[in-house]
Simulated scan of single mutants.
Amino acid sequence: MSAVFEKPPLWRRTLPLLQGFDGPLAFAVFLLACAGLVAMFSSGFDHGTRFVDHGRNMLIAGFVMFVVAQVPPQRLMSLAVPLYVLGVSLLVAVALFGITKKGARRWINLGVVIQPSEILKIATPLMLAWWFQKREGHLRPFDFAVAFALLLLPVGLIMKQPDLGTSLLVGAAGLAVIFFAGLPWRLILPPVALAVVGILLVVLFEPQLCAAGNRWPVLHDYQQQRICTLLDPFKDPLGKGFHIIQGMIAIGSGGLFGKGFMQGTQTHLEFIPERTTDFIFAAFSEEFGLVGNLLLIAGFVFLILRGLAIALEASTLFSRLLAGSVTLIFFTYAFVNMGMVSGILPVVGVPLPFISYGGTAMVTLGLALGILMSVAKARRLVQS
């Protein structure tokens, strides 16, 4: 009789929680996490407990991913409106009585100091996916106008803090949802063409636009300086251009195969600023060279393609839009970080996923991965 009531072993009881997890996606995350630990061990070896803290942040992100993956997409959809309203309300609270550090008001003290803009990285695409799910089957231009309004509200509040990097990430995630929902090309091409023309004009007239005393409208002074520094970092090689120049030197000095693990001179002689956070890609490039960079980029490409495949196979419009936009968050993170370190984009303070040090960003990535796993699990349960 005792055998009848004998409990099954722990591994058998936890097995149902792991069923439906997407193996290829988990494998891509594992490889990128290993690359991140290797890069952090080298670049942060003299930064106290930075390597240990990076590993801890990864474990926390993994736990968040595991928990969120157990939540079905239908439940996630019910959280869209409350999470979005909470996030926007906190952004308004930050604007009114937030904490100011280094000229930016981005934090608020609720017993614990938090940065509400991080919530909007997930809440905004979640809200937009919910909106288009409700309008499925009878989309009109008005519905896209409402979607843009829902997107511009948090983006505008974040830019006002100011926080260009986070506003870029939130805007990119929201635009991905609107694009995947079926935004007509006739509405996409004109602003893209206008942006290209604007970039070309800025490049052509850089000497006049970046002349001393010339003030650009709309942008903050530091944002104008970042763009001018990008166009010609050698105007101030020991000041505002130092980050970009040292990053390019480190990347170029890595050559084909790199200088070897723990052998990066630019890194260990502390010429690379923020070498464990925003500019860790430069440190990685110096030690592992072009081959290492290509392997790292291949890992991100595989992760992104797998995420888009999960989105394509999702069973509902909400799941498809959410999974697609969350996947492009990884693309935006990686593209912007590598671009700014390589000197082709302004420095905006965007970390490299799994590689850069940062607890909040890592938890956000874990949440995004959990959403992808949730969509993948729901699709496999439907198929079974």
Results as ranks from 00 to 15, higher is better:
3 A>N: 15
9 P>R: 07
26 A>L: 15
27 F>T: 14
28 A>N: 09
45 F>Q: 14
46 D>W: 12
46 D>Q: 15
53 D>A: 13
54 H>P: 03
57 N>K: 07
68 V>A: 12
68 V>H: 13
71 V>W: 10
78 S>F: 09
94 V>K: 00
97 F>N: 15
101 K>C: 05
103 G>R: 03
109 N>W: 05
112 V>L: 12
113 V>F: 04
135 R>M: 15
136 E>C: 13
147 A>V: 02
154 P>T: 09
155 V>T: 02
155 V>Y: 00
156 G>R: 05
159 M>R: 10
176 A>S: 14
197 V>M: 11
206 E>V: 07
207 P>F: 11
207 P>Q: 02
213 G>F: 04
216 W>S: 09
219 L>C: 08
227 I>E: 07
228 C>K: 07
230 L>T: 03
243 H>E: 02
243 H>Q: 11
244 I>Y: 01
246 Q>G: 01
256 L>S: 11
260 G>A: 09
264 G>W: 04
267 T>I: 02
274 E>D: 14
282 A>V: 07
291 V>P: 13
295 L>K: 12
302 F>W: 15
303 L>G: 06
306 R>V: 01
317 L>C: 08
329 I>Q: 05
336 V>K: 03
336 V>G: 02
346 P>I: 03
348 V>A: 06
350 V>A: 07
353 P>A: 11
354 F>N: 02
363 V>H: 03
369 L>W: 02
370 G>V: 05
370 G>N: 09
